[in-house]
Design a protein around this nucleic acid. Structure first.
Lengths: 344, 344
DNA sequence: TTTATTTGCGTAAACGTTTAAGTTATTCGA
DNA sequence: TCGAATAACTTAAACGTTTACGCAAATAAA
């Protein structure tokens, strides 16, 4: 009943043309020489009849859907859903709406989603994709529609990125442990070619080397959680001289923490621990764990700004060389100094 | 370059009318008497030219956007983002896309979002709203566009609901504690008129009464986390005979767990604990905590089914009386029997 | 053979906008 | 006083679909 009042209805009600109505709706009354009197009457009708523009029609006409497609592994992961919220709110300010999808790291699903996005005529893409999906998103990158990638850098893809500075953040975390008196610091990561993991490892390596200490790295060929926990356990048992551990990803931290549920709880209990990626759990866990927190708000803000710039400056932006923005993470220190057998 | 091939292009390429093309696109070739030969030629052109329908145009014409508006407090809450993912995937199967927004429990923001949804001509609404926003969503309920509410029941609103059976679930949890030998079971909730909290309390009360035991209830006037933790602490100290506690909401469980970070860790350590709402943290926390897990998949499935039914059967569905679906939650038992000074 | 159906396809209107290109009436400079 | 500029509107096309009609040819019925 309320849904259906259109520009034409307004025009008829006032006794004018739809053009005039359109102009005042779009705030072009002055510019287009609509008299104040007519403009006022139209505005009155708009309010009284409760007119709401049909964005579908507008989009069809203007060729801009004002929709941004957002694509990640799994939208229910805290990092992604947090970012989704931030981005959604910032986009709303500029009249854009976000649509989300989870690829589940599946190739077919990904092309399917991208297809749907194209059919819905999204104005831009925002995506964090795993390696192996380069070609699917790659096809979009030269095209009409702007693309901004985040979270993970894909070496093959010459695109615009908004990233956490993994090298810097890990270096800072490592330095933090050193500053607090830890001597033998291990780094637990996965065996991969993912750029962000390599950067994290490099951050650790360089700081350790510069300090004259010895690197102690465990690279896990990741199969499943159980398996990883076992490898971590063996590693820690073998290197009993370690007094601190850095986990290079949140799931590794979790796998490590699972040791505390078994009889092996001493293994981590007595050490300084730093987790890459902060999560709620860490506020509660004992021993308390320092964490590298991704700057979600900043990431969201940079993505939106980059996008707006690309959306605004059509051709100019297209010829510009891709931008890689590296944002510094925050180190959430939960316990810093090293008592006898300490934690951080 | 790829973006712009339309029905008309196909028609010109084949040398036929756009009508014919439209028919084969929509699989109405047979029905509309398009010869197999023409249909094949058209199909060939569609594939070769890489035609993608413009869903905006289609929506404008058909009056169906195939978009569902989803509205919650905060999409980054695990329960909501998990549900979002589940619902998104199920909706995709039926050609629907979800758009999400977070109200932040703000009245103005809520009306704003609903306005945007109307402008985008969503086909249906899915929402979980806090009390106080009844009127904003209430205006939609009689209207053209189907509405399904979930998670929280608003007594004033005669709408379709998909809910977790709070009464049943809490009763089951309480019974579980009794069955495992706990004698003095407390219930910690907030002082509110929220229906779901009242139902949970009722579930506890009835089972306790029936068992002949004594009710021990703490109703917190919730201000902030710190304050709640203090009240919980005082309560537990005062009633030292308690051997089990049920927290009526996940944030209460968290506030309770914060006791473990202070010197008062003994207070919960020695007791059986059940949390309403499960969350990742609980898998790691010690003492381990049994939890009531909301059936996310089932909720998503029921929402979609209900929606599809309402979308299909226009007028018939509108006259039907509102449906309230109550889904049973799952009790995730992490430690059940009561040793001397036990946990559950 | 004539008439009625079925088959196969095209014309054109409509969905609700935006906007280029008119049209008329008014003001104005010289 | 008159053409030109300006002010105030309107007409109509276009965006890419779907779909009610219309029309002719082929087939079936009479």
């Amino acid at each position: 009943m309320q849904q259906k009042v259109s520009i034409k209805d307004i025009a008829n009600h006032v006794g004018t043309s739809i053009t005039a109505v359109s102009f005042v709706i779009n705030g072009k009354a002055k510019e287009k020489y609509i008299s104040d009197k007519l403009a006022a009457k139209i505005q009155k009708a708009i309010d009284e009849l409760g007119y709401q523009p049909n964005l579908l029609a507008r989009s069809l006409r203007t060729g801009k859907s004002n929709i941004i497609g957002f694509l990640v592994d799994d939208i229910s992961k805290p990092f992604f859903s947090g970012l989704a919220r931030a981005i959604d709110e910032k986009a709303a300010v500029h009249g854009y709406k976000i649509i989300f999808s989870s690829t589940g790291n599946d190739r077919e699903r990904t092309t399917e989603i991208l297809n749907i996005y194209q059919e819905r005529r999204v104005d831009a893409y925002v995506a964090a994709l795993a390696e192996g999906l380069e070609t699917e998103i790659g096809g979009l990158i030269g095209g009409e529609t702007p693309v901004v990638l985040f979270d993970r850098y894909l070496p093959g893809l010459d695109a615009d990125y908004v990233l956490t500075d993994n090298f810097w953040s890990t270096a800072a975390a490592t330095q933090h442990l050193i500053d607090n008196g830890f001597e033998n610091i291990a780094f637990i990561t996965i065996d991969t070619r993912q750029q962000q993991m390599l950067d994290r490892l490099r951050g650790y390596s360089e700081v350790i080397d510069r300090s004259g200490k010895k690197q102690e790295v465990l690279k896990i060929k990741y199969q499943d959680s159980e398996h990883a926990t076992q490898l971590i356990k063996a590693f820690l048992q073998k290197h009993s001289h370690l007094d601190a551990v850095i986990f290079a990803a949140n799931y590794l931290t979790m796998d490590g923490l699972k040791l505390s549920r078994t009889s092996d709880e001493g293994l981590l209990q007595s050490k300084g621990v730093v987790s890459f990626d902060d999560f709620e759990l860490l506020e509660f866990i004992r021993p308390s764990i320092t964490a590298v927190e991704q700057p979600i708000e900043a990431i969201a803000e940079n993505i939106i700004q980059l996008l707006l710039k690309k959306l605004a400056g059509g051709a100019t932006a297209k010829t510009a060389k891709p931008l890689v923005i590296n944002l510094q993470a925050k180190l959430n220190v939960r316990q810093s100094s090293k008592p006898q057998n300490a934690q951080t």
